[in-house]
């Protein structure tokens, strides 16, 4: 059965698109046919992070409006032939999306793909609502600071009351916490919330901690998902997250200041 994963947060700038790109690539690299959809109509970024911005012909809104077929709009990734990207439209706004249209596209994708990753826009309005509405699993990306945590909490409330699964009284969406931009040294100084603080407020299953890392910015600017940078700590963190999501047991890393054995071997930044 195909699974629809929404990457969401409520707050902007916490790393939703970086995370969407990384986990979609991670899932595809492990042999699962994966599609990643940019729901941020009007502020499209995923194509840049995935490095396919020069190959966009048709987009999500074209497919919804019937101006292009899904196959025409899907862009195959250069690094992994099991990964496809459906870019957002840059010239339209969120109103161009309709629940019916999104549902139809997801149903069509489900026939062919194992995982469908939905990159949600910030906020709780239409775009974010449609990104999460059909989800089976939700990755809540949170930064260790109070406003991000509260917005995530709000988003969790929406997931549990306004999604399709909630409306049809099905099994609720599975929710996972991804704590990004984590800096253990700043936690120690009391400048940042700790993993435990965030978990206490959100009481959510922690899928992984992504450390604050220069490699994320480098990867974004060069259009290569950070998970492909196997030497970087952020890349390894995302690889762990994908493994845990697929059911593997992996001890949490990057929570403490001292480098783990793996980090020492590879000299993480």
């Amino acid at each position: 059965m195909a699974r629809v994963i929404v990457v969401t947060s409520g707050k902007g700038g916490v790393g939703k698109t970086t995370t969407s790109a990384a986990i979609a690539m991670g899932l595809a690299k492990r042999g699962h046919k994966t599609a990643v959809i940019d729901f941020d109509v009007g502020l499209r970024n995923l194509d840049l992070i995935m490095g396919c911005e020069r190959r966009v012909v048709y987009d999500f809104v074209n497919v919804i409006n019937g101006e292009a077929s899904l196959n025409q709009a899907l862009i195959r990734d250069k690094n992994c032939n099991l990964l496809y990207i459906l870019p957002a439209s840059q010239t339209r706004d969120k109103d161009a999306l309709s629940q019916e249209g999104v549902g139809k596209i997801l149903d069509e994708l489900k026939k062919d793909f194992k995982y469908i990753v939905c990159d949600s826009p910030a906020g709780i309005e239409k775009g974010a609502h449609l990104a999460m509405y059909f989800a089976d699993d939700a990755f809540i990306v949170t930064n260790p600071e109070v406003s991000s945590v509260r917005d995530s909490d709000r988003m969790l409330g929406i997931l549990s009351s306004k999604s399709r699964r909630a409306e049809q009284n099905e099994e609720p969406i599975k929710e996972y916490l991804l704590l990004s931009r984590y800096a253990p040294d700043r936690v120690k100084l009391g400048e940042m919330l700790s993993v435990n603080d965030v978990q206490e407020i959100l009481s959510l299953h922690l899928l992984g901690v992504i450390p604050e890392s220069k490699s994320v910015l480098t990867a974004s600017n060069s259009g290569v998902p950070v998970i492909l940078d196997e030497k970087s700590d952020a890349g390894q963190a995302y690889a762990d997250i994908v493994a845990r999501y697929l059911g593997e047991e992996k001890p949490h890393r990057f929570i403490d200041e001292k480098k783990g054995l793996f980090g020492k071997l590879f000299g993480s930044k």
């Binding site: 509260r150 909490d153 709000r154 969790l156 409330g157 929406i158 549990s160 009351s161 609720p172 009481s203």
Partner: peptide, 8 residues
């Protein structure tokens, strides 16, 4: 039985 989230 489930957490009551912000905004609910």
């Amino acid at each position: 039985t489930h957490p009551v989230r912000s905004g609910q």
